[in-house]
């Protein structure tokens, strides 16, 4: 099964420039159905064997696209997400970093009345490994099929933790980068719920970071989960009041600290890792103790 993407996923790429075309090629090589690109004004061209269209709606009508992967630059990204939702795309995944917060507030409000689920923005995307369905920018070589789901606010920490898992012989069902911005389409809690319901997933790695209270909300959900969760919070050593790269990674008040998040997750029954290099080992211990390997 896996989450969000599967063998029936037909990926459309919004913003079919350099990065979009490169990732289209990477996904095609992995075995994903990348069906078209959208760059307004370039409709009718074919780039790297992928047809280019003017609008998302054409991609839905002509190529039955059901996933949109968005690379559109930040000033125009809100428009791109709403276009995907308006065209009825069920899953929109936005890679773009640097979208103004007030734009995302409007997007989020619009999405509440639509059936589109947004992942990101400012995220590495989603991959379902056994289904060979990839909509994102993650390196595929580090993945191996298996039963561990990975959720992260950070892109590179997805790769890092997946790499650690793979080296220990632990495969992954899907990984979901929820994004590093303060306003995102799908929360950690919602992503956990997807993995909880997924028959292919036996356990979940949750990588949070400082800032906001999303990890505390995720912790509330972990209390109800049947599947074990291993968690790491990045930024334990970050100074308060400073934005650490991600727009959402800024400690404002006690709830935003790594300690507050670690405590909430521990109290909810998650296994919290203090060192980022021990994510894989810890998951191995958890899988072994629960008889899930």
């Amino acid at each position: 099964m896996a989450v969000l993407l599967n063998e029936n996923s037909r990926v459309l790429i919004q913003g079919f420039g350099g990065a979009g075309q490169r990732e289209a090629a990477n996904s095609l090589a992995f075995g994903t159905k990348v069906v078209c690109g959208v760059t307004p004004g370039r409709g009718g061209q074919i780039m790297n064997d992928v047809p280019v269209l003017n609008t998302v709606r054409e991609g839905v009508e002509q190529y039955e696209a059901n996933v949109s992967l968005i690379f559109v630059p930040a000033p125009f990204a809100a428009d791109a997400i709403i276009e995907a939702a308006d065209a009825g795309i069920p899953t929109a995944i936005c890679i773009t970093e640097g979208i103004p917060t007030l734009d995302m507030i409007k997007v989020k409000s619009y999405l509440q009345k639509s059936t589109t689920k947004l992942i990101g923005p400012n995220c590495p995307g989603v991959i379902s490994v056994a289904e060979r369905a990839r909509a994102g920018i993650m390196p595929v070589d580090v993945y191996t099929p298996g039963n561990v789901g990975v959720i992260s606010r950070s892109g590179t920490l997805v790769y890092e933790s997946v790499d650690q898992l793979t080296r220990l012989g632990i495969g992954q069902s899907s990984s979901v980068g929820v994004g590093g911005d303060p306003i995102i389409g799908t929360s950690q809690q919602e992503a956990l719920a997807l993995f909880e319901q997924d028959t292919e997933t036996a356990a979940v790695v949750l990588i949070g970071e400082i800032g906001g209270t999303a990890e505390q909300e995720a912790a509330e959900y972990i209390k109800e989960m049947s599947k074990p969760v291993v968690s790491f919070i990045a930024g334990a050593t970050a100074p308060p009041g400073r934005r650490m790269g991600h727009a959402g990674a800024i400690i404002a008040g006690k709830a935003g600290t790594a300690t507050a998040k670690q405590t909430a997750l521990r109290n909810a029954g998650a296994t919290v890792v203090e060192s980022p290099s021990r994510i894989g080992e810890t998951m191995l211990e958890v899988l072994q103790s629960e008889g899930l390997t």
Partner: peptide, 23 residues
């Protein structure tokens, strides 16, 4: 590269007994 990995790198340095000079 990446904000999360950059923060985690600082954390790992601290964990090993060192101190990061920057993010």
């Amino acid at each position: 590269n990446g904000a999360g990995l950059a923060m985690a790198t600082m954390d790992a340095i601290k964990f090993e007994g060192g101190d990061p000079a920057n993010f």
